[in-house]
Design a protein around this nucleic acid. Structure first.
Lengths: 200, 200
DNA sequence: TAGCTTCATGCAACAAGTTGCATGGAGGTG
DNA sequence: CACCTCCATGCAACTTGTTGCATGAAGCTA
């Protein structure tokens, strides 16, 4: 299971409370392994029961913040997990299913839906590039820095891949609309989407 | 939910039984949306309750094969789903977490583990390329063919991305092993090989 | 015909992730 | 002080995906 080890990693980088963990996830590890605060609290309780982290008694301050810290056994577990063999994850993205579905029941208004998604990918790409410029501008990075940069660069490459897929799909769908080959198309199709003749 | 619609798609392509669906998944849609036979049977029951598919009474033959066929309501639902807006999925690959973990608790024997994974990606890439050569060699493909080819090409691009990440990671980890400099921004003078950049 | 294997279907239990809401403590405002 | 809002933690229920095993129906073999 990965979430527990993602939490160990984050806590090893810097001990903190559950809510702070959730906030940090939202702008670092969470880009690649999202987790809600619910998952995080639940998992922290498990980690403590395992003896991998300890929780310091709640400080005073807003709410009842309870700070967690990694124990040596947790670091050991993390080292073991890092070197363990593991399989690739499949892509498991709806887009791959949707395109095949469109091939069967289309044409539909899929292109418009993909336009929206394309925009999200562009925003993500932009975000990653700003982080890259901010955090990895130095010329002589440390080992840690280089590893984290590699992760970020993979995120960037992934966004570029999806942007490319979205663009190709949109082009292909529109092209097929403009040259309606045969087969009477099934008669559905909202007239709302006027075919823009400007190719992207 | 995607599995139900992946099943509708597969059944729309060709009506068949649960076990045949499972077999077909293993060599087509399942590359990008894996499903066990358990999920498939459970989901087929749901689809039938929804009125999206119907099951013909079991034939005779091996076991009690029960063939499912998509109903018009199912096709309608599939069309609706295809055009619905949807967000990108996060990458959610352990690799991204592992590299950050290694940055914290390393060095470990991570490179060896990645070597194994690299091999899997190469096998997958090879498989996809053989499918591409087999199914998409024609010069004037139909709309369906082009859409399905696009899906496959994205799979290929994805494998290339992960292969690149694995290679970069291995190079980086080994390089760091060989020059165990530390702290103080010391003089690692001859930087032999800069990390490879991602394809795009 | 008895026993073994394979096929197709399925139950049950679990693991992981999601969603909606609850609670109790701080702090701010009138 | 009374009230409201936010913060940090957490419960409960649900969905989705995984794992292990069970069962009945053919077919194969001796």
């Amino acid at each position: 299971m990965s979430l527990s080890h993602a939490l160990l990693t984050a806590l090893a980088e810097h001990a903190c409370s559950g809510s702070e963990l959730a906030a940090r996830f939202d702008r670092s590890i969470g880009y690649f392994w999202p987790a809600t605060h619910q998952q995080i609290y639940r998992e922290l309780a498990v980690l403590e029961k395992e003896g991998w982290v300890e929780s310091l008694p709640p400080e005073s301050g807003r709410g009842r913040k309870r700070v967690y810290r990694v124990l040596p056994a947790g670091l050991e577990e993390l080292r073991r997990w890092v070197a363990a063999p593991r399989d690739p994850r499949p892509i498991r993205d709806e887009m791959m299913v949707v395109l095949r579905a469109e091939a069967v029941v289309g044409p539909t208004d899929l292109a418009a839906s993909i336009e929206g998604r394309l925009e999200r990918h562009r925003e993500k790409l932009d975000l990653y590039r700003r982080i890259e410029a901010r955090d990895f501008a130095g010329a002589m990075p440390s080992r840690e820095q280089r590893l984290r940069h590699l992760v970020l660069r993979t995120g960037i490459a992934s966004e570029l891949l999806w942007i490319d897929l979205c663009q190709s799909a949109i082009a292909l769908l529109k092209q097929a609309d403009e040259e309606p080959t045969e087969g009477a198309g099934g008669g559905n199709g909202p007239p709302a989407a006027a075919p823009r003749s400007a190719p992207s």
